[in-house]
Structure formats: structure tokens, C-alpha cells
Simulated assay, not measured.
Amino acid sequence: MRHRIIQPDGWAPAKGYANGVLTQDGTLYIGGQIGWDENQHFVSDTFEGQMEQALRNIARILDAAGGAPEDLVRLTWYVTSKKDYLANQRQIGEAYRRVLGRNFPAMTMVVVDALVEDAALIEIEATAVLATD
């Protein structure tokens, strides 16, 4: 098998996409995560609340693949409001460190007009490299 689909236990099934794909060389590609929980219900209507949940989702997928936040090498953030991001930088930094610690991979932020889920304010995709034995 060239790759393995990663789906954390107890999560509602992903429809038409994979939450994570782990390749034989240990590269973990994590599909865009938004601010909803394992039942696909939004936990917050605030930017920082959705951002923290998206990061928690990334951490859960990492864990399900046998990885940890230290394995992250890239995050790409898609946000619907640059203003919301800039207005909440302190809270965003605190939430980031609560979930991922002081691990700072290469990051890109892109401001977009909208996301597929109407209630989503942010979507974050990630790449990690896990040790292969």
C-alpha cells in the first residue's frame, strides 16, 4: 500500500475527502481543518474559537497517525477576515501554544472570500513528517 487514510476514532466520516493521508515515507498530509468538532458541529462563532478547534483537529489527526505537534513542517491558513486575525493576535498566539506548544513550522496565511462551510471563518491544512522505522 502506498498510503494510509488517517481518520481519528469517533469522528464522523469525511465525505468526499480524507482528513489525513500518511505516505510510506512518513509524510502526513492533513486536509483543511475547520472549527468544528468530531461530530461536525461548530464549537464557536468567533475567529479565535474556530482557530483553536481547527488546531485541535490537526493535533488529533497527528496523534491518530502516531505523530505529535513537533512533527509539523507546514501550516497553511485560509482566513475569511484579515481584520479578525489582526484584532485577535494575542488570543490566537495563546491558543496556538495551548494546542501545539512552541512548535512553529513554515506557515502561510491566505485571505479568501469564503470557505465551503458557510459558518467557517478559518481553515488550516498541515503537513507533517513522521519518523518511519
Rank of each mutant, 00 (worst) to 15 (best):
Q50D: 13
L115E: 07
G93I: 05
I122T: 09
E70D: 14
I61P: 03
R97L: 05
V112D: 13
E94P: 01
G26L: 04
A65R: 03
K82N: 11
V21T: 12
K83D: 08
A59R: 15
F104M: 01
M107I: 00
T127W: 11
E38G: 00
L55S: 01
D84N: 13
L55C: 06
W36Q: 14
L86T: 09
E38K: 15
A106P: 01
I92M: 11
V73I: 15
A131N: 14
Y29R: 14
L121M: 12
E125K: 12
I122Q: 07
N39I: 08
A18M: 08
H41T: 12
L115C: 02
Q50N: 10
A131T: 14
V43C: 02
L86Q: 14
T127L: 14
Q91G: 15
K83F: 05
N57F: 03
A126P: 05
Q33I: 03
R56I: 08
A87I: 07
V111S: 04
T76K: 12
A65K: 09
I122G: 01
P105S: 07
S44L: 03
A95I: 02
W77G: 02
Q53I: 05
I61L: 05
E52Q: 11
V111Y: 06
Q89M: 15
D63P: 02
A95M: 11
L130R: 10
I122L: 03
Q50A: 06
E117V: 08
Y29G: 02
Q24W: 10
M51V: 05
I61K: 04
D63M: 08
E70S: 14
S44I: 07
D37P: 07
V129Q: 13
V73K: 11
Y96H: 08
V116R: 03
E70P: 03
N19F: 14
Q91P: 08
L75F: 06
I34E: 14
I34D: 02
Y29W: 14
T127Y: 06
V43S: 00
N57Q: 06
F42D: 07
L55D: 00
A68H: 12
R60F: 01
I58C: 01
M107K: 08
E52A: 11
E70I: 07
L72R: 00
A68Y: 10
V43H: 01
L22D: 07
L28A: 04
L121G: 08
H41V: 11
T27H: 10
Y96W: 08
D25E: 09
M51L: 13
I92C: 02
K83I: 13
L130T: 03
E70R: 15
G67K: 02
S44D: 03
G32W: 06
I124G: 01
L100F: 00
A65C: 02
T80P: 03
F47S: 00
T46W: 02
E123V: 04
D118T: 05
